[in-house]
Amino acid sequence: MAAIEIRNAVKIYQDQQRKRDLLALDTVNLTVEKNDFLCLLGPSGCGKSTLLNMIAGFESVSSGEILVDGKPVTGPGADRGMVFQQPTLMPWLTVWENIAFHLKLRGVHKAARREEAQLYIDMVGLTGFENHYPNELSGGMASRVGIARALLLNPAVILMDEPFAALDAQTRMDMQEELVAIWQKHQGTVVFVTHSVEEALVLGTKIAVMSCRPGRLGELIPLDLPYPRDITEAAFNDRKRHILARFKAEADKARKSAAA
């Protein structure tokens, strides 16, 4: 069974002020297999976050359906771990309490929570920062906490909404490398939203390219380059050129239709 199945998903927003409907996502069909690392790639405003939020259950589909592990999505739940664009940590909880928040909700007692949190703290390399508060962390450390928190749910899929967009270039590269290492060790299905062609090429086993207004799913590109990926390699650059050419064609088309 596929990890995620999206069948004819459509999202329409009602614009109350202008009294008209806005088609955000137009009939998306997509199947994500178990242990895929799928990157949803597209420019800002193309509906890729909307699609991710619909998988997470924060937004509903206007028509069509989304199945995770064969069950239709009806709302948010711990079977889908989300890593947000902002770290969104509870500022009043320490690092370990943030990571183990799910266990607290399930009524697990403190010693067991602390012990389990430690596994994930070590996994994302935050050993020694267990008792720090979020405002004492750097951006990179905060996103590590966000990742550890999602991993602890041990979810069927992990959804990531441009989690590294706010980091500086160096930290972002480090985080990408570590994410791949964790994913290889941990195994699991990941859907990763990004607007960076290079990031998608560094991370994914598959790239789904999205186009704009309305958001449509374009090409699904499988990537068989070995990890860790070398961004200066010829094969890497071939793919990058291919995707950039597609983007340019899309942009030209959009400009023409806007002018017409």
């Binding site: 948010p76 947000f84 902002q86 799910h102």
Partner: peptide, 25 residues
């Protein structure tokens, strides 16, 4: 609002949301 989403993602019930997210926030 994102904290509420994060808690919903981790499976918080409404009562847990009020006591453990909204009140401290």
């Amino acid at each position: 609002r994102n904290l509420i989403r994060a808690a919903a993602m981790m499976g918080a019930t409404e009562q847990q949301m009020l006591r453990q997210v909204i009140f401290p926030a």
